[in-house]
Design a protein around this nucleic acid. Sequence first.
DNA 1: CGTAGTTACGTACACCGTACGTAGTGGGGT
DNA 2: ACCCCACTACGTACGGTGTACGTAACTACG
Lengths: 247, 247
Amino acid sequence: MAGRAAEPEVIWARPERTGRGPRPAYSRRDVVDAAVRIADADGIDAVSMRRVAAEIGCGTMSLYNYVPRKEDLYELMVDAVSGEYELPEEPSGDWRADMTAIAYQSRALMYRHPWLPRVMTTAYGLSPNALRFLEWCLGCLTPLDVPAGLKMQLIAMVNGTVMATVANEQAVAERARGLPWSEAEEQAVRGAYLMGQVASGRYPHLAGLLAEAPAAPVDAEEIFAMTIARLLESFAPPAEAARVTGA
Amino acid sequence: MAGRAAEPEVIWARPERTGRGPRPAYSRRDVVDAAVRIADADGIDAVSMRRVAAEIGCGTMSLYNYVPRKEDLYELMVDAVSGEYELPEEPSGDWRADMTAIAYQSRALMYRHPWLPRVMTTAYGLSPNALRFLEWCLGCLTPLDVPAGLKMQLIAMVNGTVMATVANEQAVAERARGLPWSEAEEQAVRGAYLMGQVASGRYPHLAGLLAEAPAAPVDAEEIFAMTIARLLESFAPPAEAARVTGA
DNA sequence: CGTAGTTACGTACACCGTACGTAGTGGGGT
DNA sequence: ACCCCACTACGTACGGTGTACGTAACTACG
């Protein structure tokens, strides 16, 4: 019998090898790295078992010696790139600064790996690097005097906010991939449609917004910084009300 | 030649029929409703062109007379269920109350249609009902004295937060669908793994949190309410600093 | 009244995840 | 020392996917 029985299991608890049999030609890490390389280059939809196998140069079905199911490959991919977080030895003591730094790292990570937001909504979050990340965040939040549950909520909100922001920014590009026309054409057509709709007069507030917007072009960088700052501030207990964010 | 040329287009600008040729046996709405029915019942992955065609009782390829590409079907699905928002004639004047009500409606919508969060991250947001929704939100935010760009950010954040919350809640259930073992088994195995990891001592903060958590079981309802309240408050200008949220 | 544009739909293609069978390899138990 | 069997590698095959294309019937317009 090839492969293990179909029992519930966590990929992280599955040993890569047991010692019996011939030496594997590759490692689980090789497979995951290849998948990440493909996803970075051609999008997550380009990651197929056949393509990954071709990338590392083995037969398709050989992959199943390293990864039991494709969904596990996704989890492994998320964990692999989560290893790119650079977490110092010790938190600085300023939880706002630490969490802000984390948010910026997350954003940079998602820029490097645009497929992350989409895959993360499915992946589970018990991976070694996810635990490492969570542990670090909790350490950063030690000075913050709120219940533990609220700290978890804060961490989730920061992550979720970064994900939503990046996913939104990249929706156009990601969507354009694989379409039979160019991204610029797509943009133009959608823009024209939107203008036409707004010109119909059915959306007065939206029209007002669009009239105002070109005058004040949005600085994505500034908006991101402000959003994170506001979010963090909303979790600070009133006692700490240093009121960092202006408006 | 069947079908139109492969030019960039917005599905919303495409007329359903042109008047020439035989009467269509179904409507675009019929197709979309069938797809929504399937997604509600068996998950978004069960929505295939063949399945949808079978649901309404026509040949597979006939669907392409109503929907040019499958991705457009997703957009149509999002728009269709977005029609379920019940938006009053006029905003109440209390933007916090109005936006809170919107958040609760969004959450209810995503409970009714668990596939929404996943599909929404791809779908574009220029659909008629999306514009209607956006227009309504902007109307609610009229009393809020902040730049227009910030209002957009607020709306996006509220939506994103609801999406992230619901997606997180349903990740377990959605993931379990189609797995060869039960959701309970999956939960048990993952829980056991987590406990084992935490018991290793490598995650002291996380251990502390887990030790504390069972004592204070989380009330999802309360957490949701508080999260939205905090989020809204973080956008209120200091002048309005009524400090609604305690901590 | 043609005829062009549409609807309906069967067939076919390329691709997907993966179950299964077979061959070869090498470590552990006897 | 030996042999057994778990393991690796991988080809084949199955049932699924989205959709391009061809064909036949039908109807509104020039």
